[in-house]
Structures are given as structure tokens and as C-alpha cells.
Nucleic acid binder design. Sequence first.
DNA 1: ATAATGACTTTCA
DNA 2: TTGAAAGCCATTA
Length: 121
Amino acid sequence: MPAKRSPVKRARSLGRDTRLSEYDRIYAIVRRIPRGKVATYGQIAQLVGLGRAARRVGYALSALRGQSPLPWHRVINASGGSSLPPLEGGITQRLKLEQEGVTFDAGGRVDLEKYRWRPRR
DNA sequence: ATAATGACTTTCA
DNA sequence: TTGAAAGCCATTA
């Protein structure tokens, strides 16, 4: 029995949903975030050309369900913190970042000035 | 078909 | 500094 597929994945397998290239572009950007660096949802939305649709970036990542080779833990919100519920992956996200050398302040937030990924072009 | 939801961001009080 | 409100729009219900 194949696992249940979301409408999006089904459409992708049929190769007829153009929105998917959008998801793929998001994933492609996330894959480029270097170790020890972080990017915000809004930043990725910009890079992909989605303007301020940061939510869609978050949605694309939620579709991964944490089951992906992508460095999803390097994506955080504009406040410098995790947007996941602590028990759902927020803890894991922080641990993974700390393993890469990213430090958090008392409020559980990352210094974006210092760790934000600045891609060229 | 309409309505609610969400791994967000920005603005304004 | 914090928090509410509005904006965004695909996915879910």
C-alpha cells in the first residue's frame, strides 16, 4: 500500500501543477543555506520571488513533515526564533542549530545580524 | 461553493 | 519592549 498522498504531491506526480515548481524553488533555496547560517521565511520568499508571501514558504516546509534531507532547521522567523511548537520540533531545531555553532540568547532567539545567510545575487 | 487555518511579516499603538 | 491587526494566499475542512 502506498502512503497517502497530499493533493499537491499527487499533482506533482502527474506533472501538471505549476505551483509545484514554486515549492521546488523554495526547497532549492533552503538547500543552499550553509551550515551555521540561518534564513527567515520572508527572506526565502523574496529569493523565490514570492514577495511577502512568507506564509507560503512556511507551508511548503510544513509539507516536509520533518522527513526530508533539507536543512529545514536553518529556516526561522523574522524575530530570530523558531516558529514550530516546542514539542513538535522547535527543540530539535534549536539543537540542530546549536550543533552547527549557532547560539541563542536568553529569549531563545538567534542574532540575525550575525547568523543570517547573505546569498550573492 | 464558502470558511477556517497556518513552520509569517510588517506596521502601528 | 510587547502585542494586536492587517496583509498574504494555498491548503483543509
